[in-house]
Design a protein around this nucleic acid. Structure first.
Lengths: 363, 363
DNA sequence: ATGAAAGCGCTAACAA
DNA sequence: TTGTTAGCGCTTTCAT
């Protein structure tokens, strides 16, 4: 016994399919008609086929949110915000993971065309021309939560990383910390680039040079720990900070030796604060700090970015730059909904201002 | 200019729609035919409509994973595992959030019928007859990652909480901790019930009575902190543990006073270990411990459950019962795939055995 | 190897 | 108010 279709219901109720459709969609019908149809629906356990319906009406009432990494808590903040807005508007939200590669991102946008959903919010780590092209060609509206060129002609909503960096640096400065290191994510990503520049500018604006800068392989906890190892190895072998950049690049083969030599005092002398490009990296760094008996914030203050749930869960709770992920999610959803209603409106580019959530990881 | 359809492509290529369909699906065709069609597809930027296609072939090649709370890190572990299996099998995975209520869960399963996906993995917090009914009536296969009665006749894959509790209690015992408190999630949930019973049995089997038992309002970090407040208030006002249950139920109105009186020594005397029903609760408890200057594991050892990414990210890293979430995810996906292939196979009920991941939160 | 045409389950004119 | 029917975009017999 296969699933009943609308025809089956019509037959069971002794009415036409059109009448069934009308009753189901709440259009005008007599008491008795409604009654009969509903009983038949009940009895057969009929459920409309959403594909057939959307094939006809041209809408799925489904929206997609694509994120790079479900393990990154910043996305749960965004997800919650997007979910709230779209479900209030009568859409259901589904989430897909793209991974860090731009090709997968492109494939997703391409595949999104025709039928999977009525719209897409995408938060890409890396952007290239193919991605932009696929977004323009996509026949459902796409809004980018991130940074793409204005020339792409697409609705975007992004954070203000430079401003965020300024907040972080100035907070540290106000607390008397001047020997600041920066742990970034991959610099070939959009946020990586933005944060690198933001950090450099913020430091310069305050007459500071970084003690060290290291680039983690991605925006994860594990990468944060590795970056921590690299950071301390570099600090130690480099001795006093000499120039603008300090240590950069891969951990050297001498890590073991350098690490052995990097005593608590040695590091604490050279470094009194670390800014990380996101909360996951920051927490990774805090673990490496602890492994070296360096106290947070006593010896070294730590600031993360994203102000995700992890920031309050970590210990000590992490001071973090709130880049407005909830607001970005909310407004991305609103932008998407608006564009679904009216595809001719001129693309908007919204930037959300950051705030600083001060917790115990800074003095 | 609307999106091109297969008819448009056929016209542009000067062939029939059937031929276009064949080329697109890799069926037999002459060189020249393939050539012409592909050029037309290229030029028009044609993308097939997945709804129309799946309406015809009866498959969407999309699978859904429904989780209660995207903020719970145990689900990211599951998600990753499910994703890996289903994408290897040529399906795309989408994730939806249901929230804690069973009615939403039911609505999801009902709505899942007809068209959204070819199958569903669901991990419900609460289960009732309606849910079970909706699962049986669902016309796409559903596998439950969790515990439903065998009579439901559905594929399930679940953890062995009692065994996990035993692991936790015995580990504590081996480390000389005997004054154990338990922080559970809501006991009207499936995991809540299972863990309550598991804990009671594990304690009894080892001749121990719990120092205290408190029930958090849900399985979140915030609830964990609240539960911590309640736990310590109760401990203090109850004095020495007298019977089997110790403190239970809501925080009393005297919390403020009790808290004031609950000194470091007082608590440490009554309590030397806490088992939490999941990692989020455990981390919440650790924060409350820290707020009272109680050292982990020095004064109080803490064990979580789920062994999620949070367990290694927390500080100190959390000893946690690995309930096999990755394996459960993997096998749930396999079960689902198998059932999609053959809907007549008799339902399987798999239980995954736990292991203990020992970290620094226990001595 | 290719084309014509039926039909997947539904909605929306249009007719009655 | 209700029924009949065309067609959404696609795949798949069945002829050719």
């Amino acid at each position: 016994m296969s699933r009943p279709t609308i025809a089956g219901v019509a037959r069971a109720a002794g009415v036409s399919v059109a009448s069934v459709s009308r009753v189901l969609n709440g259009l005008a019908a007599t008491e008795e008609m409604v009654e009969r149809v509903q009983r038949a629906v009940q009895e057969l356990g009929y459920v409309p086929d959403s594909r057939a319906r959307s094939l006809k009406v041209g809408r799925t009432y489904q929206l997609t949110l694509a994120v790079a990494d479900v393990g990154n808590p910043v996305y749960v903040t965004m997800m919650r915000a997007v979910e709230e807005v779209v479900s209030a508007a009568g859409y259901r939200l589904v989430v897909t993971t793209t991974g860090p590669d731009v090709v997968d991102e492109v494939a997703l946008v391409r595949g999104m065309a025709r039928g999977y959903a009525d719209g897409l919010v995408i938060s890409p780590l890396r952007v290239d021309d193919d991605l932009i092209k696929s977004i323009r060609e996509c026949d459902v509206p796409v809004v980018v939560a991130g940074n793409v060129p204005a020339s792409a002609g697409v609705d975007t909503i992004r954070a203000n990383s430079p401003k965020g960096m300024l907040l972080a640096v100035e907070h540290l400065l106000a607390k008397g910390r001047r020997r600041i290191a920066f742990v970034n994510g991959p610099v070939d990503t959009v946020p990586g680039t933005a944060r690198a520049k933001g950090f450099a500018d913020a430091m310069k604006a305050n007459g500071l040079s970084p003690v060290a800068e290291v680039e983690a392989v991605d925006f994860t906890f594990a990468a944060g720990r590795e970056a921590g190892v690299e950071l301390f190895a570099g600090l130690d072998s480099a001795g006093e900070p000499s120039g603008k950049t300090g240590v950069t690049g891969e951990a050297s083969g001498t890590t073991g030796v350098a690490r052995e030599a990097s005593g608590r005092a040695g590091v604490a002398e050279q470094l009194d604060a670390v800014i990380a490009a996101n909360d996951l990296l920051a927490v990774g760094i805090m673990h490496e700090l602890a492994a070296r008996d360096l106290a947070v914030p006593g010896d070294v203050a730590v600031i993360g970015m994203d102000d995700s749930e992890l920031a309050e869960q970590s210990f000590p709770p992490l001071t973090s730059v709130n880049l407005g992920s909830a607001e970005r999610g909310r407004r991305a959803a609103e932008l998407l909904l608006a564009r679904i209603e009216d595809d001719t409106r001129t693309p908007r580019r919204i930037v959300v201002q950051p705030t600083l959530s001060v917790r115990k990881s800074t003095p």
